[in-house]
Design a binder for these strands. Structure first.
Lengths: 339, 339
DNA sequence: CTGAAAGCGCTTACAG
DNA sequence: CTGAAAGCGCTTACAG
């Protein structure tokens, strides 16, 4: 194998300049005469030289690597977020080192530690919660952390989510306006802030209207669990006439189950999800749902993270971005309703 | 910010040993007395020391980073493959640096170059084709490359796919046995080996049976294009009674379109896909399809790549793994058929 | 603007 | 088994 990676010293020799000169030509804030630049570029070109990013990282202390921790790659929302994050970061000269973590606390712990060992400049934790111990450690090492689609208090932690409480309220208002009176909720995992917030907003708004939900169960963000929940709701003495499901991924499962029971969503029963992943708009589901503004969530995440990295100032923020209710056929639309 | 990363020298000082001793304790093939190990571990523990992976990479020449290039994150097959690849690699002490590339040749070129700058130990290119120039360069630098779900000849290139030609043949045999006589094909992108191979096997088998397809069009692996194709096929003078679609992602689009036209897949017309992504088994689609054995594809990819990395022997292989036809309701099942 | 030199945090022969 | 030293490929004060 011809592992002959060219070094700056070799380029220097060929160009007839010092190794430092070569380094300067390849360092953005350089200072080199046009002549030097020319000679070095020429030699580098001929030799096929490219600076070693790892060596640069060692001395500069900046790896230009962002660690990303993800768990649920089966929910369409995350691959899309991942793609957008990667593109945005690449455009700014960073790259993503990816860690798929089991959602257990221990799993996340191990993975984050591993991640710090790679000297990442920053960490994005997507739908993962952190122990305060871990957050402290990252802060102690000066590694900025942004939680994506999960919100958590803690010194040094930034988080970016959609306005989940508000979203829950919107869904409740919509279903009430639709004349529904037996409204059930298959909640997102109650161990997550998104699951809790969506539920809280939803229940608040119902209560304000003097209503109580006909049932509230935890779907754990899992397809299987959501199916069981739906089945259970249908077998109750008074089955619901509407179901708010904690995310689209589970809502699809619920719709499949309702249809299997001979019901037509949008006619016999209303179903509303949360996320607006692409599949929600496909013919087979036509799911009414709250759109998570993933583009803006990604932009905020990248901005927050890179600002902290590049200025060195830890300035944790909590950002909540409002999302619209998208009307489709899975739920009855009240006359004259505008969202 | 308290960027006080502990170094091996600090641990050495506290433990009362040399810096090299510390290094040895943290190097797998070490040689250190139990006493030294004990003292060092103790001091490391107290200080919260962890070796700097980048520094280790510099001197050892092994970064334990695998570059992954992906393009289509909207097709459910890839997030799943990504997750499995990441898990398998993590289990063996490697991590994935991710690059999302536009599918253009230039885009891939830029991204791969970028990737090599990070001194990755190996590269997995998922559904991406490489210029021979690029392949040569990777080989010259001794970086093993495995193409995942794409097959391409070239010195030093390994590739892992399912048995696509065979898969195409299986679909043809199945549709013929089902009594279909106007069989159309919405092909996978003809710029890709998977698209071409599936089509080739399919056409071969039809021809052998003395049949010609009623139509063959390129769906480009894109939802929008597939929808247009389906519409076009339906408007033909003799619309098809069966459609083989180049992958599941497009097949879902085709089914949506057929239903919009009032047809029932599996009764009025048969639809067969390729991949068997999770969505294919959900109630809304019930898609008959060839299962890509993604687990085995991932295992083979990781084995091939790590063997090359760890032995240093370039031993390019082409691996094709057979996948079964999975029967569901989207296509008419011939009496007594067993796949 | 430019070169010689120190240093980033490690691993690994080399002696002992 | 263990320490002193060289070196991985760079960047960055420091003089000139």
């Amino acid at each position: 194998m011809g592992q002959t990676r060219i070094t700056s010293a070799q380029v220097a020799a060929r160009a007839g300049v010092s190794q430092s000169a070569v380094s300067r030509v390849f360092t953005p804030g350089a200072s080199a005469s046009p002549k030097t630049v020319e000679k070095v570029r020429q030699a580098a070109q001929e030799l096929g030289y490219r600076p070693n990013v790892l060596a640069r990282a060692m001395v500069s202390g900046k790896s230009r690597i962002i660690g990303l921790v993800v768990t649920y790659l089966d929910n369409q929302f995350y691959p899309i977020a991942l793609e957008l994050l990667s593109n945005a970061l690449q455009a700014r000269g960073y790259h993503i080192l990816i860690f798929t973590a089991p959602n257990s606390t221990d799993g996340v712990e191990a993975v984050m530690q591993d991640l710090m060992d790679y000297q990442v400049d920053g960490i994005i934790a997507a739908s993962v919660s952190m122990t305060s111990n871990l957050a402290d450690r990252a802060r102690a090492m000066g590694i900025p952390v942004v939680l994506f689609n999960r919100s958590q208090n803690g010194p040094g932690l930034s988080n970016v989510t959609s306005a989940n409480v508000l979203g829950g309220r919107k869904v409740a208002a919509f279903l009430l306006a639709g004349g529904h009176r037996r409204i059930a909720h298959i909640a997102g995992w109650q161990g997550s802030s998104t699951g809790r917030d969506r539920q809280a907003g939803f229940l608040q708004a119902l209560e304000k209207a003097g209503m109580t939900p006909s049932a509230v169960v935890d779907g754990m963000y899992k397809r299987d669990v959501a199916i069981d929940c739906a089945r259970e709701l249908l077998q109750a003495d008074t089955p619901p006439d509407a179901i708010f499901v904690g995310n689209d991924h589970m809502a699809f499962a619920v719709i499949d189950e309702l249809r299997a029971a001979g019901m037509v969503p949008g006619q016999d029963i209303s179903v509303v999800g949360y996320d607006d992943v692409p599949l929600a708009s496909w013919g087979a589901y036509q799911l009414t749902t709250i759109r998570q503004p993933v583009n803006r969530m990604v932009d905020s995440t990248v901005d927050l993270l890179l600002r902290q990295i590049e200025t060195g100032v830890a300035d944790p923020k909590t950002i909540k971005i409002e999302g619209d209710l998208i009307l489709r056929q899975s739920a009855h639309i009240p006359k004259g309703w505008r969202s």
